[in-house]
Simulated assay, not measured.
Amino acid sequence: MGNCYVIVIDGLGVGAQEDAAEYGDENENTLAHLCEATGCKLPNFQKLGLGNIIPLSSVPANNEPLCAYGKMREQSAGKDSTTGHWELAGITLDTPFPTYSEGFPNEVIQQFCGGIGVEDVLVNKPYSGTEVIADYGEQHLQTGLPIVYTSADSVFQVAAHVDVTPIDKLYEWCDFARQHVCTGEHGVGRVIARPFKGTPGDFERISDKRHDFSIKPPMHNLLSSLQQHKIKTYSIGKVVDLFSEELFTQYRRTKHNAEGISQLLSLMSAVSDSFVFINLIDTDQKYGHRLDPAGYAACLQQLDRAIPAIISKLQEEDLLIITGDHGNDPTSESTDHSREFVPILLFPASLSMDINLGTRQTFSDVASTVSHFFGINVDFPGESMLTME
């Protein structure tokens, strides 16, 4: 049977979808604009066929790509990581998760404060995570009030200094918000605990202690189906934070892409007949949101250098899928995600229905493909890209 690996390069889009204007993203094209702005060379991705998906100024098409290639259209409403990963796992959302461009309503904040025993919160508006602690961290130290903020994504974020609020207490606050505040019409995709340390002028987020409390996905999904059929499931990176922890046999959170790649290579030597779901977050979190095309390009080149090692670890019966979850154009004026097609690379190409997979109608083609690979008959919205019996 073999192993199936799905690698999600967070925020890697390949051009605006037909409905992108509804999201203000009609001019976005993360990968093409990145190549134009930086001249980014990706020789190993070029061998796989990345340059065959759309024209890229610095990554030419390959006449004999190692992968079947194409792009996928998102059917769900939204353009965030939870929505994208859920659709990859066979879940389509008709209504996007709520966002709060003006901050959370008073009743939400009051319920949160009452539940955790504080008088008020600081900020309560969209803010950069690094800037919010720089601007409000000292006031937080003086008052002990939690810093609550959001972003363009559907998130309720709580930041607190470890000397004011122990990390376990912060987790309790966020769990309360997940269970009792951010529900129903205010059911954001994620409640995120953001502990930080340091002194005024030198505050620093403690990235490996961040914890996401995600809304639980509908139980008809790829991961639950695999578990029902006794297929082991593994998460690397933030995937576990987008799904229920109980949906994974084992999960490994990571601080950055280098660790994610290292964990993947290690796991590839240990698993058999298993599904491994990997998110590589730096392209989105560190560079897309911060409008840093040079950093984004260097991040892709880091992964490009790892491609030969990943391919060499694959067994003859294994399947590798590389894709994205949404766009995040670092050359844009917007720091938000973008409504884009995402790439699909499928290795080995010999398993695919065609070398050119064209434009797939839903991210859920991945769920159907993985199910087909493991011989499971499940009625996800997508279609399998494989020809294997």
Rank of each mutant, 00 (worst) to 15 (best):
S214F: 06
G295P: 02
A21L: 12
P98L: 01
H372E: 07
D208V: 10
V121D: 08
G39V: 09
D163N: 14
E316R: 08
E74W: 05
G129I: 04
L314S: 03
V6R: 00
Y136W: 15
L48N: 05
V239Q: 01
I310T: 10
I376E: 01
D120G: 01
S272A: 14
L319G: 07
E245L: 12
I376D: 02
P218Q: 08
T83P: 00
E317K: 14
T82N: 01
D25C: 08
D329Q: 08
V59P: 03
D80V: 07
G382F: 13
T359Y: 13
T362F: 11
T199D: 10
T323W: 03
S235N: 07
K169G: 02
H186M: 08
K169R: 15
I376L: 12
N106C: 03
A297E: 06
I9T: 07
I206S: 01
S350I: 09
I236Y: 09
K71Q: 14
V14N: 05
Q315Y: 05
L291Q: 10
E18L: 15
E131D: 14
A258P: 00
D94L: 05
P293I: 11
T143I: 12
A306L: 03
L314N: 03
D365Q: 04
P65A: 09
L357C: 11
L66H: 02
H326Y: 13
G288E: 04
H229V: 08
S350F: 01
N62F: 04
N3W: 04
A177N: 04
V148T: 02
P65L: 09
L122Y: 10
A152S: 14
P330W: 08
L122I: 14
T130E: 13
G13N: 12
F277R: 00
V132F: 07
I311A: 03
S384A: 10
H337A: 00
Q17H: 06
S269H: 12
D94S: 12
G198M: 05
V191I: 14
E333P: 00
G15Q: 04
T335K: 05
G84N: 03
H85W: 06
H85Y: 09
C4H: 01
R252Q: 15
T335L: 00
L50A: 06
G51V: 08
A294M: 11
V158L: 06
F104W: 13
V271L: 05
L48I: 13
S224N: 13
F380Q: 00
Y234A: 02
D168I: 04
S101N: 11
H337W: 09
Q17N: 04
R252S: 13
V342F: 10
E340C: 08
G375D: 08
A21Y: 13
L351D: 06
E28N: 12
E245D: 13
Q227K: 15
